[in-house]
């Protein structure tokens, strides 16, 4: 193989750049509030990381410039609703950095995906703020007002397609009667898909996790769809709604908390895909990426142990 070798800092930076298309789509549909969230997240992340490194008595500069904390911050910022109040992201990122990463010894030692740990913490603690997405494009001033609590949020929010599906189905309406096609969700997912393909081509991520994860989503949703197409949405719906593409290419592929053997990655990705659909359909929360990823993070040592490749001569 002749590939230009990247160092760890460059890898982190490349992953951040690859998010640009998806973020662009979010900005196009929801407004510049997305940038406010990212900005808040990065500042919080850097300050928390620096403080904690100081407490741990380790060197601050190399850890700050390695780009990992910025990547975690961006991932969390684009996962939460863009009009969530400022303290949501500040709290979430601090939690992610402290309890998701630094408490285990910093980069490379965390068993869980820090961004998803932060997300799960926020979703469980503040379910209301975490499920109110903007119904429409918000101007900068509107966004500032909403995020910093200067004006009331009412009338600006709407349900996401996953949320909508869940509430309508419980009211006994069949899928065919629902208007489910969310153009914003579609484009955001396409944005992340393209970014992911870039990472694959640059060989920054391996193909196993994204491919098996998407396959897991398709297999599980198709199985349910075949059982009852009135009650369960199609695979296409699951692929282009919620954080499916973000999870497949950017979240489940976090190398530190993912399985590290070639066949282990296939199992890991596939099971996340299956779990995403199961939790979406049968769970209490609309989206399921964070829980699916965290659950599989726990199983990584086991998967890695049983999927060791055959060693030469053994």
């Amino acid at each position: 193989m002749t590939v230009k070798l990247l160092n760890t800092n460059q890898i982190m930076r490349q992953v951040s750049y690859a998010l640009a298309l998806g973020i662009g789509a979010q900005v196009y549909f929801f407004g510049l509030s997305v940038f406010i969230q990212i900005f808040l997240a990065c500042i919080t992340g850097l300050i928390t990381e620096a403080l904690f490194l100081r407490l741990r008595g380790s060197e601050i500069k190399p850890a700050i410039i390695d780009g990992s904390v910025v990547l975690t911050a961006i991932l969390l910022a684009i996962s939460i609703p863009s009009i969530a109040p400022w303290w949501i992201i500040v709290l979430g990122v601090s939690f992610a950095v402290i309890f998701g990463k630094q408490i285990f010894g910093g980069l490379g030692n965390n068993p869980f995906n820090p961004a998803m740990l932060g997300y799960a913490f926020l979703l469980i603690s503040y379910p209301m703020q975490m499920t109110q997405w903007p119904a429409d494009y918000l101007s900068m001033s509107q966004a500032v007002d909403v995020i910093f609590g200067l004006s009331n949020i009412d009338g600006l929010t709407g349900a996401t397609s996953l949320d909508h599906l869940k509430t309508q189905l419980t009211m006994g309406i069949s899928i065919q009667e629902l208007e489910l096609n969310s153009i914003s969700q579609l484009w955001i997912n396409i944005g992340f898909l393209l970014g992911g393909i870039y990472l694959l081509l640059r060989r920054i991520i391996f193909w196993q996790i994204p491919v098996s994860l998407l396959l897991g989503v398709v297999v599980m949703s198709t199985a349910l769809f075949l059982v009852d197409s009135d009650q369960f949405a199609s695979s296409l719906f699951h692929l282009v709604n919620g954080a499916t593409m973000l999870a497949a290419f950017f979240i489940a592929t976090d190398p530190v908390s993912a399985s590290t053997t070639p066949s282990g990655r296939l199992i890991y990705g596939f099971l996340i895909g299956i779990l995403i659909v199961i939790i979406r359909v049968f769970g209490g929360y609309p989206d399921a990426v964070a829980f699916a990823v965290l659950l599989l993070n726990i199983t990584v040592p086991l998967i890695d142990f049983y999927t060791q490749p055959k060693v030469f001569g053994k």
Binding site: N9, I11, G108, V256, T260, T261, P262, D304, P309
Partner: peptide, 25 residues
């Protein structure tokens, strides 16, 4: 000499290992 960073378990090493070990482990 370039500074050493933490291992992020990217797994590039096991793709080049000629005897199929898991260097990251």
């Amino acid at each position: 000499s370039k500074p050493t960073k933490e291992c992020i378990r990217c797994g590039l090493c096991n793709t080049v290992c000629p005897v199929d070990l898991l260097p990251q482990e």
